[in-house]
C-alpha cells in the first residue's frame, strides 16, 4: 500500500487458544449485554448482533482468500495483486455492498446473493485485468512462489518463475481465491448492512417512503466502518501479503475469525445502542 512494508518483529505464531477462548467469551457477553440493555427489543437486538458477527466472520475469512502481493508484486517480484490487502478486500466488499443495498427492498436472500455476486464480479474483473497486464503488457506468465503445482489445474509452477523472484502474476488458484474472497466480502458486508438496516427501521419507524433515509445513512456508514475495522485486523493477521488459499499463511484464518467475532461484537453492540438507548 505505501512504502512501509517492514515485517513485524515477532514471528507470527500459532493459534492462541486461551486468548481466543477469552475473545469468544467476550463476544457472548456482548450479545448478553445487548439482550439485557435493549429490554423489549432484546430478541431483535440479539438476532441483529448475531447476524453482524456472522457477517464479520465471513469478511475476515474472505480477506484471507484475496491474493495480494504488496509492493514486491508491483515489480513482478512476488505473485498477487499489487496493492494493499485491507483496501482491495474493502473495495470488493463495498462494491458488493452497493449491489446488496440496491436489492435490499426485495428480500434478505436476494440482497445477500446480490452483494456476494457484486464483490465476486469486482474481483473477477480486477484479477483478469491484472493477468492481462502481466501477460500482454509485460510478457510475463503467471507463477506461484509457494507451491510446486497449482492445486486446481495441476500446472507446474517453478519453471515459469523468472530468476531472482518469488513468482509473479495470478496463477489460477489465486484467481479463484480472489473471486471467492470477493464473494465472501460482499456477502459479509451486505449481511452487516441489512441486519443494521432492519434493526434501525424497526426502532426509528420508517417514513412512508418505506426506507428511512436516516436508517440507510446510519447503517451505511456503520457497515463501511465495521468492514474497515475487520479488514484491517485481518490484514494484520496475514502481515500484509498473501498468495491465496494455497499460501501457508492461509492457515492463520481461525485467529482472524475469532478476532472478527469479538471485534464485531463490541462494534455491533455500540452501533445497535446508538438508536435504541436513552
Amino acid at each position: 500500500m505505501s512504502a512501509i512494508a517492514a515485517k513485524p518483529g515477532a514471528a507470527a505464531g500459532a493459534f492462541q487458544p486461551v486468548a481466543s477462548l477469552i475473545a469468544i467469551f467476550f463476544a457472548i457477553i456482548f450479545i448478553g449485554t445487548a439482550y439485557w440493555l435493549l429490554g423489549s427489543f432484546g430478541c431483535l437486538a440479539v438476532e441483529a448482533l448475531i447476524g453482524i458477527i456472522i457477517g464479520a466472520a465471513l469478511i475476515a475469512f474472505g480477506v484471507h482468500f484475496v491474493p495480494v502481493g504488496g509492493a514486491p508484486a508491483a515489480m513482478g517480484q512476488s505473485p498477487g495483486i499489487a496493492t494493499g490487502v485491507a483496501m482491495l478486500a474493502t473495495g470488493a466488499g463495498l462494491a458488493g455492498l452497493f449491489g446488496g443495498a440496491w436489492a435490499a427492498h426485495i428480500g434478505l436472500w436476494v440482497a445477500l446473493a446480490g452483494g456476494a455476486i457484486g464483490g465476486g464480479l469486482m474481483m473477477a474483473i480486477t484479477c483478469l485485468m491484472v493477468n492481462i497486464s502481466y501477460v500482454y503488457g509485460m510478457g510475463i506468465p503467471a507463477a506461484s512462489g509457494k507451491v510446486e503445482k497449482d492445486p486446481i489445474t495441476g500446472d507446474s509452477q517453478p519453471e515459469y518463475k523468472s530468476q531472482g523472484t518469488e513468482g509473479h502474476g495470478l496463477p489460477f488458484i489465486s484467481y479463484v481465491g480472489g473471486v471467492f474472497g470477493g464473494l465472501l466480502g460482499g456477502l459479509g458486508g451486505t449481511l452487516i448492512y441489512i441486519e443494521l438496516l432492519n434493526f434501525y427501521n424497526v426502532i426509528l419507524l420508517p417514513t412512508s417512503e418505506g426506507t428511512n433515509a436516516l436508517a440507510v445513512g446510519l447503517a451505511g456508514i456503520f457497515a463501511i466502518g465495521m468492514f474497515l475495522v475487520i479488514a484491517v485486523l485481518s490484514a494484520y493477521n496475514i502481515t500484509g501479503t498473501i498468495e491465496g488459499p494455497h499460501d501457508p499463511k492461509f492457515k492463520r484464518f481461525p485467529r482472524a475469525i475469532v478476532a472478527a467475532i469479538c471485534a464485531s461484537g463490541i462494534c455491533g453492540l455500540v452501533a445497535l445502542l446508538v438508536v435504541a438507548i436513552f
Binding site: A73, A74, M75, L88, C127, M138, G139, S162, Q163
Partner: peptide
C-alpha cells in the same frame, strides 16, 4: 483506487521504473 492500483501498478513498477531490466521477466530482488 483498488482497480486502478491493481491493474496499473505492475505496469508502472516493473515495466517503467525498471525499463533497463530484461523484458518478460520479473525484476530480480
Amino acid at each position: 483506487g483498488a482497480a486502478g492500483s491493481a491493474t496499473g501498478n505492475p505496469y508502472y513498477g516493473k515495466e517503467r521504473q525498471y525499463q533497463n531490466q530484461k523484458f518478460g521477466a520479473g525484476v530480480p530482488i
